[in-house]
Simulated scan of single mutants.
Amino acid sequence: MSAADFPDQLKALDATLRNIENVLDLDRLRRERAELEEQASAPDLWDDQARAQEVNSKLSYAASEISKMESLRSRLDDAALLLEMAQAEGDEGSVNEVGTEILSLQKAIDAQEVRTLLSGEYDSREAVVAIRAGAGGVDAADFAEMLLRMYLRWAERHGYPTEVYDTSYAEEAGLKSATFAVKVPYAFGTLSVESGTHRLVRISPFDNQGRRQTSFAGVEVMPVVAQTDHIDIPENEIRTDVYRSSGPGGQSVNTTDSAVRLTHIPTGIVVTCQNEKSQLQNKASAMRVLQARLLERKRQEEEAKMAGLKQDTTGSWGDQMRSYVLHPYQMVKDLRTEQETGNPPSVFDGHIDEFIEAGIRWRKQTQIAG
């Protein structure tokens, strides 16, 4: 990249940013922020905790989106001004500084552009994510726990609120399954590309002979049900079981039967929740997850009908989509997009944005090609 190209590159970035600003409709977002700020300041807001959390989540999201866009616009304008001054004064150091900023802006604007690709019917929803250990015994359970931490760290890095509904611990180590929510708009559209089978290859820390082990875990991402959805579940279609919550190794973490298991009789879908303190809270959380599962099932069936294809919507984890290799070499690779990195520890610490962005672009291209 030569300095002679900098003006054209800045113009191209400006055009891309303007397109993003138009798609996101910043004026609308600012109006929404003002309305939400007014709602958040209401003295009786916390009389309804669920409503209060929803308002604060939407306000946080709107403020974050506006801040990102305003920051990018300011940086781009400053870079153009600095280039103009540096070229007029023959300041080569400042010209090089603009070149570095252009590369940084390109990456940031590309990442923000991905958000404009989330236009599906449910993409703007919050998300419920379920992780389940697959084949591989104790290694698979440990892998499921690694994935749970990875997604929670990703959300934490972005400042997205999360709520863990259920963690079912395996006997020796790790998790049989876990369910959590990411409570921010567009969480479903963003994380839905993470659905599928994840594969881990490593020297097993649980094998005293130090053999290489391949294990699998499934990730399912579902949209949170909104009031406008028609997901009615008659009481006679649900079997409710209560039991005592337990932690790792079966250690009791609750002295009452507060954990709840819901079974949707027509579909056989089973949902558990044990992380709340009361049975009523656990049942409410479990019902939200069950509704999300049924909504996702409905969404998949509608997609299959539209495409004229028959898809398995009975809980299949889908095709293998990503490999995490820790031995004999270090690599994480997405098998759909070819996105890869040689730094698995960083990925497991929540640095997965490049994989998510590549997945969203891949999905959009696949839809266009289809």
Rank of each mutant, 00 (worst) to 15 (best):
Met1Asn: 05
Leu13Arg: 06
Leu13Val: 12
Arg18Ser: 13
Asn19Arg: 15
Ile20Lys: 04
Asp25Ser: 00
Arg28Glu: 01
Glu38Thr: 06
Glu38Ile: 07
Glu38Arg: 13
Gln39Trp: 05
Ala40Glu: 02
Leu59Asp: 07
Ala62Met: 00
Lys68Leu: 09
Ser74Thr: 02
Ser74Phe: 03
Ala79His: 00
Asp91Tyr: 14
Glu92Lys: 09
Asn96Thr: 09
Ala108Arg: 03
Ile109Thr: 01
Asp110Met: 06
Ala111Val: 04
Gln112Ile: 00
Val114Phe: 10
Glu121Pro: 05
Arg153Tyr: 07
Tyr160Cys: 10
Asp166Arg: 00
Ala170Ser: 13
Glu172Met: 15
Pro185Arg: 02
Ser204Gly: 12
Arg212Met: 15
Gly218Asp: 05
Val221Ala: 01
Met222Asp: 00
Ala226Ser: 09
Asp229Ser: 10
Val242Tyr: 04
Ser246Cys: 05
Ser246Ala: 13
Thr256Gly: 06
Ile265Met: 15
Thr267Gly: 09
Thr272Asp: 00
Lys283Phe: 07
Ser285His: 06
Arg288Thr: 09
Leu295Trp: 14
Leu295His: 05
Arg299Met: 12
Met306Leu: 15
Lys310Leu: 13
Lys310Ser: 14
Thr314Asp: 15
Gly315Cys: 03
Ser316Leu: 06
Val332Gln: 10
Lys333Ile: 08
Arg336Asn: 11
Glu340Gly: 01
Val347Thr: 00
Val347Ala: 08
Phe348Gln: 02
Ile356Gly: 04
Trp362Asp: 10
